[in-house]
Design a protein around this nucleic acid. Structure first.
Lengths: 143, 143
DNA sequence: TATTGTTATACTCTATAACTATA
DNA sequence: TATAGTTATAGAGTATAACAATA
């Protein structure tokens, strides 16, 4: 039982999908005057403050690259650096009020647009798709 | 009938998936001493030569950004610029021999790693996943 | 000594605006 | 005038290597 769509390999489909999502993300970020990297950083901070080392790992960035990224969003008043009292080498990066607003708005817009793209699918298919992705993601995904 | 994985929204799953693919792409590019942008460009050229304007559209880049990108890979001998005889303003960007090698190798490695990630899924589920993605992609995706 | 984060440096990527050459 | 591409400029993103401060 071979369908017409089966001609495209899964990996190929995933790569194209990733590019699509990437562009959505870039477009939305731009509307909020953020670079995609800044938007990604802000979104990562929504659950709560995070240290530089962990941020570096979860964003796949060298510490030195991260320093600059944080500098720029801090300069715009979107995050704060707070020195840790227990370990005075470390610091926590936290969203400010306006940083949180931007992060949430960006996230919602991205989500809305992607949902729109997936709108062609029935509710049942959307659930199936989610399950399949999670099934092949959660085994490896760090975050 | 609600499954455990259903708690994660589809859009959320897609965003995470995109980041995952993005990192695979970045890692592989790096092994070949390419930036992700350069690798993406080379892969786009595999089917055949393309003009600047079309490249600009399909990579979502301003023409001026593309000029620099092409400059750098041309300097490395991976692509050539050929002036078009019919319209002497335009030019075609084509892969050289070594450019083709790199493009194909990168593409294969990326594909292999992603297939590996999806290896948890049964063959049938992989087909289902592919169909679902294509179903929600092809309606909008330009390329 | 090891870890946390920053600084210095050198490229790459990107957009905007102004430009050249051709159509 | 409109289109194809480049140049000039400025800022952002990134990695490597060397460093400072703390553990």
């Amino acid at each position: 039982m071979v369908t017409a769509t089966e001609q495209l390999r899964l990996s190929e489909a995933l790569v194209r999908l990733a590019h699509l999502v990437q562009h959505v993300f870039a477009d939305v970020s731009r509307e909020y005057n953020l670079t995609p990297q800044q938007a990604q950083l802000l979104c990562r901070l929504v659950p709560g403050p995070v240290g530089m080392s962990e941020l570096s790992r979860s964003l796949h960035l060298e510490k030195s690259s991260l320093t600059g990224l944080i500098d720029r969003v801090e300069r715009r008043g979107l995050v704060t650096r707070t020195r840790n009292d227990r370990d005075r080498r470390a610091c926590q990066i936290a969203l400010t009020g306006s940083g949180t607003e931007l992060a949430v708005a960006t996230h919602q817009d991205v989500t809305a647009r992607i949902d729109e793209l997936a709108g062609e699918l029935s509710r049942a298919d959307q659930q199936r798709l989610t399950s399949l992705i999670v099934g092949s993601l959660l085994c490896t995904a760090d975050r």
